[in-house]
Design a binder for these strands. Structure first.
Length: 275
DNA sequence: AAGCTTGACAACCGCCGATGG
DNA sequence: ACCATCGGCGGTTGTCAAGCT
């Protein structure tokens, strides 16, 4: 899968690296380091250019490199970070210990790009659906097939929103109040009323723990898309843009900012202002 | 079985910013 | 202030393997 080795007009070897060349390069760097890549091949006795040596070392020979496919968790992180950072492969690679920018870039172009696009399509579809749902609930009581459910997660200070497509059963107070704790529900109130009550309960608690999003803390076994996105109370939109993540068959999570003013101003509409 | 297409990935190339003379 | 050098980065290419027709 590597390019056939050849020598250019300057006598510099190009193409795939042999095992022997790898050994020479590795041994030299382990002994003398790589303070000057341009001079390195000359002193190491390699017919390569400095850039080629650097690339080989950084992408293949460097210690603690992981080889093989990215895990599902790593792929999810790449997609998320790419969404935020764009083609900053080196920055993304820095968040994934043992992975190189080249490897991540290759993975992106070969498969993640497609997956991200699919996710984007699904997310857009759900956003549209949710907007329609909210518009409906703003004026009327929810119909059997158009409603939202908002609950407070037991162990996370987040507002969990279920779109109508995810709730197959028809609207009922029982459905609405599940998991909301002491938030009472009445048959005569609307979804917005229920949501407001839930949010009031949340705002009274002020118990948002500092759970700053840190990708390095993500277990590779975690499914990024199914992990609730929780931000700390000192929310910084630039650093951590809120996003309505689509989870396929899973719930959609929206953030609780920890700012009661947001609730006072009507959390529901505020929460659904897509950015 | 042969030819074609697609996916995967190592490696190359050119550009850019940092640094030092 | 200018220029040369270097390292680093992102885009692209070349090649092979696997899958498909």
């Amino acid at each position: 899968m590597v390019r056939t080795p050849f020598y250019d007009q300057n006598g510099v070897k190009k193409g795939g690296w042999s095992q022997e060349e790898d050994n020479i390069l590795r041994a030299y760097i382990e002994r003398y380091g790589h303070s000057n890549w341009r001079q390195l091949p000359k002193y190491a006795g390699l017919s390569r250019c400095g850039k080629s040596c650097r690339l080989r070392w950084m992408n293949y020979l460097r210690p603690n490199l992981k080889h093989g496919d990215l895990t599902k968790g790593e792929e999810d992180i790449v997609i998320k970070l790419h969404q935020e950072l764009g083609n900053k492969w080196s920055v993304i690679a820095a968040k994934l210990p043992g992975r190189t920018d080249n490897e991540i870039k290759n993975c992106w172009h070969s498969k993640l790009k497609k997956r991200a696009k699919q996710c984007e399509i699904l997310t857009t579809a759900h956003e549209t659906e949710l907007k329609e749902t909210i518009e409906c609930t703003s004026y009327n009581r929810p119909t059997a097939d158009q409603h939202i459910e908002i609950t407070e997660a037991q162990n996370h200070d987040v507002v969990i929103v279920k779109s109508s497509s995810m709730i197959s059963s028809s609207w009922s107070p029982e459905t609405t109040s599940s998991g909301v704790g002491d938030c009472s529900s009445t048959g005569g109130s609307t979804a917005i009323d229920h949501a407001a009550q839930s949010c009031q309960n949340l705002s009274m608690k002020h118990s948002v723990t500092s759970l700053e999003m840190n990708f390095e803390e993500f277990s590779i076994n975690d499914d990024f898309w199914t992990t609730p996105y929780v931000v700390e109370t000192t929310y910084n939109q630039d650093s951590y843009p809120n996003y309505p993540a689509d989870h396929g068959e899973h719930d959609i999570y929206y953030n609780y900012y920890g700012d009661e003013n947001l609730f006072d101003q009507g959390i529901i509409m505020g929460e659904f202002q897509y950015q």
